[in-house]
Each structure stands twice: as structure tokens, then as C-alpha cells.
Design a protein around this nucleic acid. Structure first.
Length: 806
RNA sequence: GGGAGCAUAGCUCAGUUGGUUCAGAGCGUCUGCCUUACAAGCAGAGGGUCGGGGGUUCGACUCCCUCUGCUCCCACCA
């Protein structure tokens, strides 16, 4: 189900900015005119993300693409609002909100970013009143970072346990500059050892002060307007911006003798996530949704395992949030979004109904004389999340939200609940938790079983990538440069659940290289001609047998990884199977000599393997796999790799795989030695030209391989494995024959030295009674075998040494 | 201040009841190769007291304590 939300705050900001650049102010437009501009903007830009998804090859049901402000989805939102209102969950109230004076809207707590900011700490003298509003010569000192709000002070507060200020009890003090009399009150909220121990209480402009104000029944005086300017209630500095006012009042206070001192001070200040404006705590009429009961159910859904979070470390975070959730402020002072369906009567009463017609009807029950023109709809719109939390339901059946009693339509009944939700941990609460709430409420069933939380992609500095910051590479550019498959596999290979990704273009390069590897492997196989008379060589037969087993074992591994949502592990297993096992070993073993045709058995096996590999990687690399799959043979109209069965294992021979691994190690050892011997390409070509591989060279390889394995402390019983590898033309190259005696002696001595050291450590372990008695039998048995093997190796090496020296 | 988590190779990370398989992967690095699929490649090599310290255990990357450093979430001292 592809789609987008309407991102009300971000979009409205963009549209306002665009209009501003054209010399149009939002205030000059009617709501309808503004929305027209907003829709134009949406049509132009809203498709970009969907376009990127298409370019990436996201396999979505594009015909069903939805937008949260589609008429039917908007209707679902309105119905939901009415439903919760009538249920008593939605209420309207004066609350302290985070006001964004630039965006001119309230933003949720979650949209406020606290940053340490350097500011000033002003120590101000408040003179004690003589009772008639005149100052005495006694004063107290308060410390504040916001001297421009003193005109809104409602009281001075001290801690009742603070002996320094007992003399203030019952006194009144005068606000500097305006000489307004306010009481001194006591509240244990005040920290005695912070600042001066005296706190000015400004209920309208600080959330904590507001709460103190409620406890002490203090009047609320709001002196800052919606743009962050002082209003006429401030009496002085009216019309000044809050920061300008702060500068000016500092001077005024100093001149009036009320400023004791100013200190530098760093404190956390809230900024709007969207506009970066300093948040102004402001009393405001807002709509709220009660969360207590919804959160309780949503918590239970996760605690009981009905919804699984991956990785599950997020369960703790989730629980903590759900247990401390506050009511959800769902109103936004914007135009772009679903308008709140509350309709006000001239007398201030209001009704909540889904349509103006229903509202009029309801209003007439309150006052029969009301006409449609008398009703005024609420100016605010709803939080975007209030529409996206319905997504899993409303995209299938928009009539369902708000009507839990109505039967779901066919689509909804079929698709709900879904299996897996993939999303970022940063919206676990905004979106995921709320979708669970809406699901529980309207469907009596959670919307999904598993929530896979991806990492957040960060830039090399560790900063979050975001549209607004503009530090994200354009996916379309990356796709143009490297291909969509490269971008997909490159990013996925290094992303494990819940871990952030530090983006680096080399990851995408790795993806591109892998694409090329796949392409070239196909070029090789596709270029083979089949010689119907050719017998299958022994090496090829063994290789086919081996790779069939290997493929099955990796299919099982991959299945296990996927079942545990270990995506990058699964993909890395396929990556290695393709590159290391298929290309580096299998193809090298079976590829026919230059000019010769392949035998049919090997050819067909190779094609089958290649097809299986394509199917395995297809979900993450859809383009190249489809292209090659279509090319492998004539396909029927409409046939596609997308609809093929994913490879399934029919078992594998673990012993055989282990033997082959040993053989591979032996070959590697030979190659290592060859490298040290530095055989020139010319010599190699000369060797290759000989039809037959000299038997003495064969023996030398085997010997060297075994010696090398001994040095590595690994078992040497791999001659069977080596022999068939050695017969392949890759191995016809290595050595010319004779072995340098001195070098051989040095090697044997090294073997002896290594093994004696090893033996000593094993024997030490075996002489420990606690180990022999305490450890499991098989562990002890392994140690005993190591001991015996080591002794045998030392003896053999010593014998060879003697013979060589002799 | 409250809560959660992290620390393993130069980088990004695995390490699934404490024990044959455990010290790993990918990328990067170094060395040698224009080899008839692929130099965006091939072959080989080096690289880590598993953050420090202590404890439990016959045995600890793994469990416990502590210290140090970092991240995130929540709340926020005027």
C-alpha cells in the first residue's frame, strides 16, 4: 500500500515560504485561496517520494496509492474525531502548549528539540512593599533568564523549608518598573540551592510556573502575543519582540537600580523542530485526546507479544513511554489538514458533528433559531498523525474508522492485520503506537504482528539525514550513477535491525560491484557451447555435487536469518554464496578449457544453480535478476521471476561440505606457497601449454599442501579432496617440481616448534583435575585427541627431518 | 535528574543457553598479477590483552560488581 501523508506543518511552511518569495503573505489570503496554493504544491512535490520508490523498484500496489487528505481518508479522520468526542475522550481546554511564534502553531512536546543555549542569568531586586504599593528599602533577589516576562509575574515563591526567607512570609513585593504588588508564596517546588532560592512565578509563560499557579490559585496574565511580541498587558515595551524587549528591559532595570548582576548562563532551550524558532510556552485553547485507556491497551498489545518489536530492546522504551503518556494535543493552528468538525454557536456553545448539515441540526436542538450562517466552524486543523494513525484501516475501508460496530469491507477483512511493518524507530511513538491504538479501538485487533525498526541513516558526521537538513544524497542521483539494485543491496548489506547506518558511498559501490559480478558470471555461462559428445569431467561432477549441497545449506541458513529478521546476515550469506562459492570456486572448477564446449550435464546444472541464485537475491535486486532471468531462456508472455518460487532446500551432505572446505584450504595453502615462489606469468603459460600435468609436480603440491596445513595446526587428511582440485586446470599452474631441502627443513622445524608449544598447553589443561572432572566429557575427549594428534605430528615431522638431513 | 542501550580488527558490525566449531564477516590496507566472464577483477597476506579493573566458575567476549567513554529516550532548575 503506497502512499503519503500530508505533513501539515512542514508543507504549510513550504507553501508559506513559496508564497512569501512571490510577495504574497498568508494573511492576505482566504483559507480557500491558501488551500488552492497548497494543493498545487502537493501535486508538484508530493509525487517525488513515490517516484523515488518506483525508481528503487519498490513492489507496491501502485493502483491503490493513497494520500491522507484524499476525500475518503479525510472523512475517516472526521468520523474518528466525532467518535472520540462522543465517547468523551476528546476535550477542549486551556493548556500550556509549545507555541512556535514563527510557524504560528502549537507543536507537540515531541516536536520540540532542547538544545543547550548560551544566555544570561539576570539577578533582579524586588523591593518589599510597605502595604500601600510603595517600596521599602528591603528587597529580595530573584534570578531569571527571562526578565522581559516580569510584568506577568503573579507571585514570588520560596521553599517553605528555606530559613533565609522566613521573614518574607505574608509580605508583598513590587514588580520592578511597573510597581505592581504581588504576594510571596511558599512551594516545595523551589530548589533552595539553585539561583537565589527565590523564584518569580509567571504562570502564563512557564509550564512549571503554570502548575504552581494552579496550586496557589494565582491569576494568569499573558503578555506575549502569537508572534512573540509583548502585548498591551505588559504595560511597558508594548509591541517589542521578546528578545528585543529582553535587551531593553536590561537597561531599564539597571537604570532603575533593580539589576544586581548579570551572569553568563547556559541552559537548555526548546526549539521548534520545523522552524527552529525558540519555543514560547503559551496558554492556548487546544483540543486533546485522552490517552490513558488507549495507551493501556496499546501497551498490553506489545507486552503480550501480539505485536513484536524487532529488535526487542525497544520494548523497554515503548513501555516507558506508554506508562508516562500525556494527553495528545491534536489541534494545530494551520489550514493544511483536516479541519476540526466543531461548530460554534453565537453564544459560544459548540457542537461536534461530521458535516455542517448535521451540525446545524444538532445546534438547533440547543437553539431552534440558529441558521447555517450563524454556525462558525473551528479554525484549527488536526495533527497529521491523527490521520496517519488510521492508515492500516482507512486505506482499505475508509468507512470503518469511527465505526467499530460496522462490518469491515472485503479488502479490509482480507488485508487486516498485516504481517510486518517496517519503519524508523524515531516514529515508534508518533505513528506505530498510535496505529496500534486505532487498531485496537476500531478493529479490536492489532494492525500488524511484527514491527521491524530500521536504523536511521546518518551522514558521516553522525547527523540524522533529513529532507529539511538537506544532507541526504538524492536517491535518484545515486540510482543514476550506480543503479537501483546497487543502492538497495549496498545499503541493506550493512544495516542490521535497530542500528543506525553511517552512510558512505563505498557501500553503494560495493553493491554496484556485486551487480557486475552477477552480470559477468552470466556472461561466462551464457557463452558456453554444449558439446553433446563431451563426458563430464570428474572435477566437474564433484563440483556440481558440492555446489548443490552448498546451495541447499545456504538456503537453510538464509531462511533461518530471515525468520529472525536478520536481514543483513541473510543477504551477506547470499552475497558470499554467489561471489565466493559460485564464482570463485564452482565456476573455476567446471569451466571448460578454452575453445572446448561444456558437457551437457555440467551446463544444465550450472544454469539451474544460476537461476536459483537469481531467485534468492531477487527480492533485493529486482532489476538485474529479472533481466538475466528473462535472458536465460525463452520465457512465456507475462512470465516473471517475481512469481517464481523461492528456492527451498532438499537437504545437504554436511560431511561432504566439510571435506570440500578442507580441500579448499589446501588449495589456498598451495597458492600461498606459489605466491612466495613468485612464478612468472610466462612460466605459467608455459606450464599451461603442456597437455599433461607432470605427476611429480602433483606430488609436490600435495606434499606442500599437507605441510602447510600442518603448520596451520589443522588436520592433514585431505589428500582425497586435494586430488580432484589438483586435477583442474587452475591447479596445473603452480610448481615446477623440485623442493628446496633447506626450505623443507625450516618448515619441518617450524612444525615441530609449533606443535610442541601447542602440546604443552594441551597437557597443562589435561593435568588440571578440575578440568578433567568438571568439564563435559566431549570437551575433555577433544583435548585428548588434540594431544594424540600433536604427538603424532611431531614424530612424523622429526622422522622426515631425520631423513632429509641424513 | 529519571530510564534504556552501547564499547570486539583501520572503518561498519556479527558473535544466538558460559565449553570441539570462538576470536569472526564485509569494507579498507599491504603484496603479486592486464590470466580468454569480471582490474568495478583475480590470488595471497597482515591486522584484535573482545574499553579498564575486580568477582563467580574447572573454564568468561559471554554472568555479576565497579570505573571510564559514548548514544538515544523522557523530564527539565527559574
Amino acid at each position: 500500500m503506497p502512499g503519503t501523508d500530508h505533513a501539515s506543518i512542514a508543507t504549510e511552511n513550504k507553501v508559506v515560504a513559496k508564497l512569501k518569495s512571490e510577495g504574497i503573505s498568508k494573511e492576505d489570503l482566504t483559507r480557500e485561496e491558501f488551500l488552492k496554493h497548497a494543493w498545487e504544491w502537493k501535486e508538484k512535490h508530493g509525487g517525488i517520494i513515490l517516484g523515488q520508490l518506483r525508481k528503487l523498484g519498490a513492489s507496491c500496489d501502485w493502483d491503490r496509492t493513497k494520500f491522507t487528505m484524499d476525500p475518503d481518508l479525510s472523512e475517516a479522520v472526521i468520523n474518528t474525531f466525532v467518535y472520540f468526542y462522543k465517547k468523551g475522550y476528546i476535550y477542549r481546554g486551556v493548556r500550556m502548549v509549545n507555541w512556535d511564534p514563527v510557524g504560528l502553531t502549537a507543536v507537540s512536546d515531541e516536536e520540540v528539540i532542547h538544545r543547550d543555549t548560551v544566555s544570561k542569568f539576570y539577578h533582579l531586586r524586588y523591593f518589599i512593599s510597605d502595604g500601600n504599593g510603595n517600596p521599602t528599602d528591603k528587597y529580595l533577589v530573584i534570578a531569571t533568564t527571562r526578565p522581559e516576562t516580569i510584568m506577568a509575574d503573579a507571585a514570588i515563591c520560596v521553599n517553605p523549608a528555606d530559613e533565609r526567607y522566613h521573614w518574607l512570609k505574608g509580605k508583598k513585593v513590587l514588580i520592578p518598573l511597573i510597581n505592581k504588588e504581588i504576594p510571596v508564596i511558599e512551594d516545595s517546588y523551589v530548589e533552595m540551592d539553585f539561583g537565589t532560592g527565590c523564584l518569580k512565578v509567571t504562570p502564563a509563560h512557564d509550564i512549571n510556573d503554570y502548575e504552581i499557579g494552579i496550586r496557589h490559585n494565582l491569576p494568569v496574565l499573558d503578555i506575549i502575543d502569537e508572534h512573540g511580541r509583548l502585548n498591551e498587558k505588559a504595560r511597558i515595551l508594548v509591541g517589542e519582540d521578546r528578545f528585543e524587549a529582553r535587551k531593553k528591559i536590561e537597561t531599564m532595570l539597571r537604570e532603575a537600580g533593580n539589576l544586581e548582576k548579570v551572569e553568563d548562563y547556559t541552559s537548555p532551550v526548546g526549539y521548534s523542530e520545523r522552524t527552529d524558532a525558540v519555543i514560547e510556552p503559551k496558554l492556548s485553547m487546544q483540543w486533546f485526546l485522552k490517552m490513558e485507556s488507549l495507551a493501556k491497551d496499546a501497551l498490553e498489545s506489545v507486552e503480550s507479544g501480539k505485536v513484536r518489536l524487532i529488535p526487542d530492546k525497544y520494548r523497554n522504551t515503548y513501555r516507558h513511554w506508554m506508562e508516562n503518556v500525556r494527553d495528545w494535543c491534536i489541534s494545530r493552528q494551520l489550514w493544511w489538514g483536516q479541519r476540526i468538525p466543531a461548530y460554534y454557536l453565537p453564544d459560544g456553545r459548540f457542537v461536534v458533528e461530521p458535516t455542517p448539515e448535521a451540525a446545524l441540526e444538532a445546534a438547533r436542538k440547543l437553539n431552534p433559531d440558529i441558521s447555517a450562517a450563524d454556525l462558525k466552524q473551528d479554525e484549527d486543523v488536526l495533527d497529521t498523525w491523527f490521520s496517519s494513525w488510521l492508515w492500516p484501516i482507512s486505506v482499505f475501508d475508509a468507512a470503518k474508522p469511527g465505526h467499530p460496530e460496522v462490518q469491515a469491507n472485503r479488502d479490509l477483512a482480507y488485508y487486516y492485520p498485516t504481517n510486518d511493518l517496517v519503519t524508523g524507530p524515531d516514529i515508534l511513538f508518533f505513528w506505530v503506537a498510535r496505529m496500534i491504538m486505532a487498531g485496537n479501538e476500531f478493529m479490536h485487533e492489532v494492525p500488524f504482528r511484527n514491527v521491524y525498526l530500521t536504523g536511521i541513516v546518518r551522514d558521516k558526521l553522525g547527523r540524522k539525514m533529513s529532507k529539511t537538513l538537506g544532507n541526504s544524497p538524492d536517491p535518484l542521483d545515486l540510482i543514476a550513477k550506480y543503479g537501483a539494485d546497487a543502492v538497495r543491496i549496498g545499503m541493506l548489506l550493512c544495516s542490521s535491525a535497530g542500528n543506525d547506518i553511517l552512510y558512505d558511498e563505498t557501500q553503494v559501490e560495493q553493491g554496484r560491484n556485486f551487480c557486475n559480478k552477477i552480470w559477468n558470471a552470466y556472461r561466462l555461462i551464457a557463452g558456453w557451447s554444449v558439446d553433446e559428445n563431451a563426458e563430464q569431467p570428474e572435477a566437474a561432477a564433484v563440483a556440481v555435487k558440492w555446489f548443490r549441497s552448498k546451495l541447499n545449506s545456504v538456503v537453510e541458513t538464509v531462511e533461518d536469518h530471515f525468520s529472525k529478521f536478520r536481514i543483513s546476515d541473510a543477504l551477506m550469506a547470499i552475497y558470499k554464496l554467489f561471489w565466493d562459492d559460485f564464482c570463485a570456486w564452482y565456476l573455476e572448477l567446471v569451466k571448460p578449457a578454452y575453445g572446448a564446449g561444456a558437457d551437457r550435464k555440467t551446463y544444465e546444472a550450472s544454469m539451474d544453480f544460476f537461476e536459483a541464485l537469481l531467485k534468492m537475491i531477487h527480492p533485493v535486486m529486482p532489476f538485474i535478476t529479472e533481466e538475466l532471468w528473462q535472458n536465460m531462456k525463452q520465457r512465456n508472455e507475462g512470465e516473471t521471476i517475481m512469481l517464481q518460487r523461492y528456492p527451498v532446500s532438499d537437504g545437504f551432505d554436511a560431511d561432504f561440505l566439510a571435506k570440500f572446505d578442507l580441500a579448499c584450504e589446501a588449495v589456498t595453502a598451495v597458492r600461498s606457497i606459489r605466491q612466495q615462489k613468485n612464478i612468472s606469468p610466462k612460466e605459467k603459460l608455459a606450464l599451461r601449454a603442456k597437455a599433461d600435468f607432470p605427476s611429480e609436480a602433483n606430488a609436490a603440491i600435495r606434499k606442500l599442501a599437507n605441510v602447510d596445513m600442518e603448520v596451520a595446526g589443522k588436520p592433514a587428511d585431505n589428500s582425497a579432496g586435494v586430488s580432484f582440485l589438483v586435477k583442474t586446470h587452475e591447479m596445473f599452474v603452480p610448481l615446477t617440481g623440485h623442493v628446496d631441502a633447506a626450505e623443507e627443513i625450516a618448515k619441518l622445524e617450524a612444525v615441530i616448534e609449533y606443535q610442541e608449544k601447542f602440546l604443552a598447553s594441551v597437557r597443562k589443561k589435561l593435568s588440571n583435575e578440575k578440568f578433567v572432572n568438571g568439564a563435559p566429557e566431549h570437551v575433555v575427549a577433544v583435548e585428548r585427541k588434540k594431544e594424540a594428534d600433536s604427538i603424532a605430528k611431531i614424530e612424523a615431522a622429526k622422522a622426515s627431518l631425520k631423513a632429509l638431513k641424513g
